Amino acid sequence: MRAKPTAVALDIDGTLIDHDEGMSPAVLDAVRRTAAQVPVILATGRAWSTTRPVAERLGLPAGGFVVCSNGARTMRFPDGDVVDERTFDPSTVITSVRKYAPNARMAVEESDGTYLVTAPFPDGDLGRDARIRVVGDDELAPQPVTRLIIRDPDQSESDFVHLAERLGLHGVSYFVGWTAWLDIAPEGVDKSTGLKVALAQYDLEPSGLLAIGDGRNDIEMLTYAGLGIAMGSAPDEVKSAADEVTKSVQDDGVATILNRWF
Rank of each mutant, 00 (worst) to 15 (best):
V189C: 00
L10M: 09
E139Y: 00
A211I: 13
L209V: 12
I41D: 07
E165W: 10
I12S: 10
R32V: 03
R151G: 02
W178V: 05
L195V: 13
G232P: 06
D112R: 03
E205G: 07
I257T: 02
T146L: 03
W178E: 04
K191C: 08
F88S: 06
L222H: 09
L126I: 06
S192E: 14
S156H: 08
T51R: 02
A72E: 11
L60T: 09
A234S: 15
M23S: 12
S173L: 06
A130P: 09
R57E: 10
A107Q: 08
D13W: 07
L58C: 07
K191M: 09
Y174P: 00
V176Q: 11
P142T: 13
R73H: 08
A3C: 04
V83R: 01
V67D: 00
D190A: 13
P144E: 10
L60M: 11
V172I: 14
W261C: 06
I184E: 05
A47P: 02
F88N: 05
I184Y: 04
I229S: 04
D243V: 08
V54P: 05
D138G: 06
G80L: 02
G226H: 07
G71N: 11
I132S: 13
I212N: 07
R46Y: 01
T50E: 12
F262N: 11
A130V: 06
R166S: 15
T179N: 10
S156K: 11
D252F: 05
R131D: 08
I132L: 10
G188R: 08
I219C: 07
Y202C: 09
T50G: 06
L163T: 14
V254S: 03
W181G: 02
D190G: 13
R86W: 02
Y115R: 03
M221D: 08
T74F: 00
V145L: 07
P53G: 12
V161E: 14
I149E: 10
A234V: 09
A3I: 04
A72Y: 10
L169P: 14
P144F: 01
N259F: 00
S248C: 11
R166Q: 15
M23L: 15
I229N: 04
E56V: 11
L222C: 14
P90V: 13
G208A: 00
F121A: 12
L10N: 08
H162D: 15
